[in-house]
Structure formats: structure tokens, C-alpha cells
Simulated assay, not measured.
Amino acid sequence: MLDELLQVAGDRPAAAHATGLPVVGCVGADVPVEVLTAAGFLPLRLAGDPDAPSDAGDLILGRGVDPVARSVLTCLLDGGYGPLAALVVSRDCEASLRLFYAVRELHRTGDGAALPPVHLVDVLHLPHRSTTAYVLAKVRELRAQVARWSGHDVADDALAAAVAAHDRVRTLLGRVATLRRVRPARLSGMQALAVVAATTALPPDRAAELLDGLLAQPLPDVTGTRVFLTGSSHDHPGVYAALEQAGLLVVGEDHDWGDLLHHRRVDPPPDPALLELAIAERYQHNGPTAARASMRQRAAHTAAAARACGAEALPAYARIRDDAPRWDFPAQRAATGLPAVLLEHQPYGRVDLDAMGALRAEVAA
């Protein structure tokens, strides 16, 4: 099952289209995928490609924007994701918002004829009841928009079934995460990253089937210096591969292509009338990501997660044009008490391993 999940992760758009379902591209982890699944769509989370030129995205967004957003826009313009029924963008960071505005403007000017219709989901993460009400309104707006795209209402029972299916995937991913926390680990960080990515390109029932098979599969030991990776998100395995080839085993992380994608479930209440509210609260309180949470929240979460993983060191990776992780690092280092290093201004999909030398020496001492 691991091999099949890794194969899906290697070409997620192809796997998504192979299902025969109409595919909706999703940008960011704040998109309520349950609504799309309930309407009969397959939500495909879009990733960039650091190994491909992003000239079109650079021209439209400017090179001052996170290279991930520029790469995603380039792939959209080039048709690299295959035919998309629609595009849903979450305001998970400023770069995603800029991407949405760019696609909307291309539609307005007539230059976006090849682009799918686009909708923005503005999920806020403040711990207030007024924020919950706002996010609930955004969930309902998405539900209405999805109904227009599909040509039929999103039925309550279909939404409840979709919530249950996605919650099951999240539960299973939580169990998969323990495979790299045990000693010795049974899954590398790069493998775990690929497994999570694969589930974002499959119907939830199929993803759950493969995850069940993975959990029942005997796996070999994986060794290395155990590190908890904080900082920028990783939609590409390049950084994990480089770290683990250098002898560092990524046993956990706090970005939304990894553990943060699945650590909170919807857990719907018995009253079906409150299901939309439960979805809103799940996305409101999900995180904490570097772009949307306070330094105190990030430090507390990182410290607890690193302890749970048995991490021996804390590398903080800050991608170029993604400055939020740099502000979090001092508090995270103090809260974890681990040997730590800040890797600043890193190129998309790559890491400067020379800067890791001092960290490895400190751990060895």
C-alpha cells in the first residue's frame, strides 16, 4: 500500500483525473473540502513545481511573491493540472490571496479564458464567537457556489457523509504519523509527506482504504537524527529528501502539508442542523500555521509536538519570500529547549545543508 500511495503522490493530478470525478483545484489548507466532496467533486490540492520555470506566474504576480504561488499560477495557465471544473482559493496566506486576485483579474480582462471559475474562502483564525459567525457565513457561501457549479443543491445527508469520510482519513493519518514517532521509526519524513499528499488527490474512501492497508503493512526500520521541522510549508519533497540524505530523520512538522493538515477533525454534533457550524469551527481553529497564528501559539504547539515526536533537534526552514517563520523561531527555540538552527531565505524546494553542520555537531555532543 505504501508503494501505491507513493505512486499517487508522484503524479497527483493524474491520479485525481483517473477517478473519473470532476476535479476542483484547491489552494491552501483552509478550503472546506467536505463541501466539494458532498457535491460530487474531487478536491485536488494544488502544489507547485520548484523544478519547472514559473515565468508566467512571475510576470503576473511579480517576483516579490512566494514562489509557490507563482509556480501554481504558472501551472494553472499552462494547463498542468489537467481540466479543472473550478478553483477554490483559501486565504491561508498573503500569496494565496494574491493568486486569487490574479485569476479573478485575468477572467475580468478576458485573458483567463483557459482558467476555471474561481471562488475565495476567507477563513479567519481568531478565537472569537464573531469569527465563528464569519467563517460559518463563508462555509455557506462556498456551499451555495458549489451548488451552482454542480447544478444541484448540496444535500445535508451528502454533507454529513463527506464529513465522516474526511474525518476518517484524518484519523488514519494521525495513526500513520505514529509510524515515524516510534523508536525505531517505521516511516521516513519524506514517505510521510508523500502519504499525506496522496490523500489530497483521492476520494476520501479510497484514501482511507490505502491508509488502512499501510497501517497493516510490515515496514522496515528507518534511522537518523530525529528532527522536528518547523517553518514554511512543503508541497514538494525536495527539502525532506535533502535532510534525510544527510542523516536527519524528520519525525514531525508543523506545516499544513504535514501533521497540521489532519490533526483536527470536524467531529459533527448529533444535531444535523449544527453540521455547518462544526465545519466552520474545524477550519477556524485548525493550525497554528506560521502565516496565521501568533508567536506564542506557534511556540506552544511546536514544543508539545516536538516532545511527542521525540525530536532531538529543531531546524526552522524559512523559504524565500516567506518571512513569517523567522519571527516565530526565537520563541520556538526557547520553548523546545532543543538544539536549533534557522535556515533563512531558502530557495523553493531546496535547502542549504552547510548551515546544518553546527546543528548536527551540537546534537552529537
Results as ranks from 00 to 15, higher is better:
L214H: 02
A334K: 13
G82T: 09
D78N: 09
V35R: 03
R360W: 03
R298M: 14
D271R: 07
A242G: 03
L215H: 05
E4W: 05
G224K: 03
L136K: 09
R148A: 10
D111S: 12
L142R: 01
D271L: 05
A334L: 13
P288E: 09
L275Y: 09
S294E: 09
R104H: 12
D221V: 07
G25D: 00
L21A: 11
A164R: 11
L99S: 10
L59V: 09
V250K: 10
G349D: 14
E141F: 02
P43Q: 04
V24L: 05
P220Q: 06
M295D: 13
V169P: 00
H236P: 06
V176H: 07
L115P: 05
S71Y: 08
L229V: 09
T171D: 12
A364S: 08
V68S: 14
V65S: 02
L275I: 04
A114P: 01
D205F: 11
H119T: 06
G310V: 10
V363L: 05
L260I: 03
V68K: 11
W327P: 01
P347S: 06
P53C: 06
W149Y: 07
A335W: 09
L243Q: 05
R186I: 10
C75P: 02
R265S: 14
A177I: 00
R98L: 15
P32F: 00
E362D: 09
A56R: 15
L202T: 02
L76N: 08
